[in-house]
Amino acid sequence: MSVEPQVIDETAAGNTVFVYEGPVRLWHWLNALSIFVLAITGYLIANPLPSVAGEASENFLMGYIRFTHFTAAYVFAIAFLVRIYWALVGNHHAKQLFLLPITDMEWWGGMVQELLWYMFLVKQPRKYVGHNPLAHLCMFFGITVGGIFMIATGFALYGEGAQEGSWAHTVFTSWVIPLFGQSQDVHTWHHMFAWAIVWFIIVHVYAALREDIMSRQTMVSAIVSGSRTFRD
């Protein structure tokens, strides 16, 4: 995408290009799994299941749900950090998630083209080795911004329970809670962004499947095998 002649070469019909390196694909699926677990357990923390019977000392349902949420959160956050590291050492496509080429007019032109494509106003989408500009923008806000927001607010809430002296309290709670004013607001925003990530996933999964069928390149197999094949 950065160098025009290269793009023409790479995206020729029948050509297969290696795009997503192993760590990127592993991160994608680990990320998907942790978000799935986080969303379900998170919903159950805000809206707990019906009460369990018996002695309190014999049950730990809410405790297990919260433990699962926190564990998945650690997986999500650590995977995110490793992903940032891979953006530094990985190939060009590994960096895409963290950088928006907002000064590139061609990128914006591509964005318009993609929007027209989704509005059924152009017959054929353009071909891209990595993300198309619209997907790139959605990824950036859904995963990078959304992920950082959820990690910061999530660990701030975790640090409340872990209390002062814990790393989460020192690194996040100590400034996130005062920034929002109080804990209830942080809970509400954490909840709201969780829903925003659910919206992102609905659109992301649909767009990936649709593009896999209708665009001129493979999508789903690319995030499994790492290679993208161009059809025409």
């Binding site: 805000a46 509400t188 909840h191 709201m192 829903w195 925003a196 659910v198 919206w199 659109v203």
Partner: peptide
């Protein structure tokens, strides 16, 4: 409206 109502509604609309 709370976060669940708003989030659920938008998710349904998106779906």
């Amino acid at each position: 409206a709370n976060a669940d109502k708003i989030g659920g509604t938008v998710a349904a609309v998106a779906g």
